[in-house]
């Protein structure tokens, strides 16, 4: 079984600061990490490998320094890594990102399972996994918490929903996005760390993926980030307490005083 895991390098959210004037992320001096949900995807793949003869390839699209994220995954026991890096990929939205990652999975050829984190902690869209599956014409399941390999051609998965847990059988090839319940990510081992340090990581660009430059990066994107800002803190909050009738009365008075239309 060949598992492809898509990861993204993101700023370490524990240390992110917002510039109070520009309202943008201060990236200087902020360490980059593997998106925590993608690390669960790596762990899910490694768990399958613990039980079966799986081979794991980790993929990321990003600038040359995203190589670090791939080596981090290798140091935890992933077999191979591929970096998708090209100036033409800059400015990709989820559509262009999925187009690019899907092309890479297609190029790999023999992928049975694609694993992604449920979403990235920087963009929080949760779109890339399902979009990739659509481009690859694969069945997919999101918010997966447990994966069992039934045989060479099917998986039994449990997915967490607001209502409860759904259990599905999916034929391979398929794509899953996972949540933290798949298991706590293991730490690197010394042997894998040494291998990761020396590993040669292939870099694939637009030409390698057989994509047209206009379909990737900013020009292949339907959306653009115009501005990022943190919403101003709301300070005018009032806690209404007491018996329910009084609460309703107070609420009505507050809304009226605030000149809410229609009251």
């Amino acid at each position: 079984m060949h598992i492809a895991v898509c990861i993204k390098q993101v700023p370490d959210t524990k240390n992110v600061r917002i510039d109070p004037d520009t309202h943008t992320l201060v990236r200087q001096g902020v360490e980059s990490i593997i998106n925590p949900f993608d690390l669960f995807a790596v762990e899910a793949a490694l768990k399958i490998k613990d039980e079966t003869q799986a081979t794991i390839t980790v993929l990321t699209m990003g600038p040359p320094q995203a190589d670090e994220a791939l080596r981090d995954a290798l140091s935890r026991g992933v077999d191979d890594a591929v970096l998708l890096s090209d100036r033409a990929f800059a400015g990709s939205d989820t559509w262009a990102t999925s187009t690019t990652l899907a092309a890479a999975v297609r190029k790999m050829g023999d992928v049975d399972v694609v694993l992604c984190g449920k979403q990235a902690v920087d963009g929080d869209t949760a779109q890339v996994g399902p979009e990739m599956a659509t481009f690859l014409d694969m069945p997919y399941a999101t918010f997966v918490k447990k994966i069992e390999v039934l045989d060479g051609s099917a998986l039994k998965i449990s997915r967490q929903t607001d209502e409860g847990v759904e259990i599905w059988k999916l034929p391979t090839p398929c794509l899953l996005t996972v949540i933290k319940e798949v298991g706590e990510p293991r730490l690197p081992s010394l042997r894998h760390k040494m291998r990761a340090k020396k590993a040669t990581i292939p870099v694939w660009g637009v030409a390698d993926l057989g994509l047209a430059p206009e379909n990737v990066g900013l020009s292949g994107s339907f959306t653009q980030v115009v501005r990022v800002f943190s919403p101003p803190r709301r300070t005018d909050r009032v806690l209404i307490q007491g018996p329910i009738e009084e609460q309703v009365e107070q609420l009505f008075r507050h809304l009226k005083e605030s000149k809410v239309p229609g009251l």
């Binding site: 730490l187 690197p188 081992s189 010394l190 760390k193 040494m194 340090k197």
Partner: peptide, 18 residues
């Protein structure tokens, strides 16, 4: 050596995270 630094790094990560 590079390997010795990796040992330090790895053990430090275990200390910090675990």
């Amino acid at each position: 050596t590079e390997e010795q630094q990796m040992i330090q790094e790895l053990a430090a990560q275990i200390t910090k995270e675990k």
